[in-house]
Computed example of a mutant assay.
Amino acid sequence: MGDIIPLVGEHLALDLVNTRPADGDLLATPDDLLAWLELQAGRFSQARDLAAAGPTAAGLAAVRDLRDHTAQVLDHVRRGEEPPAGALDALNRAQRAAPPISELTWDGRAVTMTRRRTGPPAARPAAWLAEAAADLLADPAVVKVRQCEAHDCVMLFLPAHPRRRWCSATRCGNRVRVARHYQRHKPV
């Protein structure tokens, strides 16, 4: 992932789309995907399982393709427009490539359930992320998704507060505020 720190903590589908900032691609190699999945592991139990399997070049290609289709659908849906049918089909195909199951086991005292995905290991990360994209895209709140107001930022976020303007107060907010302060106070 290089020197760029990924924006995490938004809805998982937004975190995925945000792996393509204005100045590069945070998912350039299978190791980048592994590092990103490990960043997500604290929030999503499946991320740890996917990271443990070790992403492959095929898995990375599937995730990057999914990211592009998610971004395309999201761009239309958040404006209330019909998304391209091909992009929706791609999201559905990704989910079908590694269907989820709820596996039941006996732990000695009770039946427990664990969600996991079947299908080829290379398809599992994209299927898991496609399911997260479907959750976001079908949520009525998707129309509230915003792009950061910093002039050189393309990050998306779902504001918890209606006055939120930047992807991150520390990433873009401070930079914009410092630039504004400099403009107001620069010597003439």
Rank of each mutant, 00 (worst) to 15 (best):
D3E: 14
I4P: 00
I5F: 06
V8A: 00
G9A: 08
D15A: 11
L26H: 00
A28F: 04
D31R: 13
D31G: 11
D32I: 02
L34P: 03
A35E: 05
W36C: 03
L37S: 05
E38S: 14
Q40N: 08
A47R: 03
R48D: 13
D49R: 08
D49T: 12
L50I: 12
A51D: 00
A53Y: 06
G54F: 07
G54H: 09
A58F: 07
A58V: 12
A58H: 08
A62T: 04
L66C: 04
Q72E: 04
L74F: 09
R78P: 06
G80V: 03
P83G: 05
P84G: 11
D89Y: 13
R93G: 13
R96N: 12
A97S: 15
P100A: 14
P100T: 15
S102P: 06
L104E: 13
L104T: 14
W106I: 05
R109K: 15
A110W: 00
R115M: 12
R117N: 11
T118E: 15
G119Q: 09
P121T: 02
A122D: 03
A123Q: 06
R124W: 05
A127C: 14
A127P: 13
W128D: 04
A130F: 11
E131C: 11
L137V: 13
A138M: 01
P140T: 06
V145L: 00
R146V: 07
Q147T: 06
C148T: 01
A150S: 11
A150K: 05
H151A: 14
D152Y: 05
V154L: 04
L156F: 14
F157I: 07
L158V: 03
L158Q: 06
P162G: 07
R163A: 00
R164D: 00
W166P: 03
G173Q: 03
G173E: 09
V178Q: 04
Y182Q: 05
Q183I: 09
Q183H: 02
R184G: 10
H185N: 15
P187I: 13
V188W: 03
